[in-house]
Design a protein around this nucleic acid. Structure first.
Length: 111
DNA sequence: CGCCTGACGTTGC
DNA sequence: AGCAACGCCAGGC
């Protein structure tokens, strides 16, 4: 990695703006950054963000509200535990009331 | 330098 | 309504 892609930092910033007790989806961030087809890239960026303490990757889930990246955490339950502590109900790796805790950057950040 | 994999999403069948 | 395949792009080996 000769350089760190700018959009990586963009993803980090958006994720860092996620309020406690709220979650967002990769596609939402991707679309917000213009990476409409780069949802994968967002997740990929998250992989690097995983090393940054300021990037709550546990608040980022997929479109289904499913904790797809929980396996990348220190423990398979770390993501669920973190969300549960913030008030987000997680059952079987699935976010409950996903539509209620969903945080849309395009709206919350007023684009 | 080339191939493969990968925290997703969407469309088609 | 559920399952499968494709598409996008970048990093790692």
């Amino acid at each position: 990695m000769t350089e760190k892609p700018n959009y990586f930092d963009l993803v980090y910033q958006v994720v860092k703006e996620i309020p406690e007790g709220r979650v967002t989806s990769y596609g939402a961030i991707a679309h917000y950054l213009g990476l409409k087809s780069g949802a994968r890239m967002v997740g990929y960026a998250m992989n690097a963000a995983h090393t940054l303490p300021d990037v709550p990757a546990h608040r980022v889930v997929n479109r289904q509200g499913l904790l797809t990246g929980r396996h990348h955490f220190s423990t398979p339950t770390a993501m669920q535990e973190a969300l549960a502590k913030e008030g987000v109900k997680v059952e079987k790796d699935q976010v409950q009331n996903f539509d209620q805790v969903f945080w849309n950057p395009e709206i919350e950040l007023s684009i």
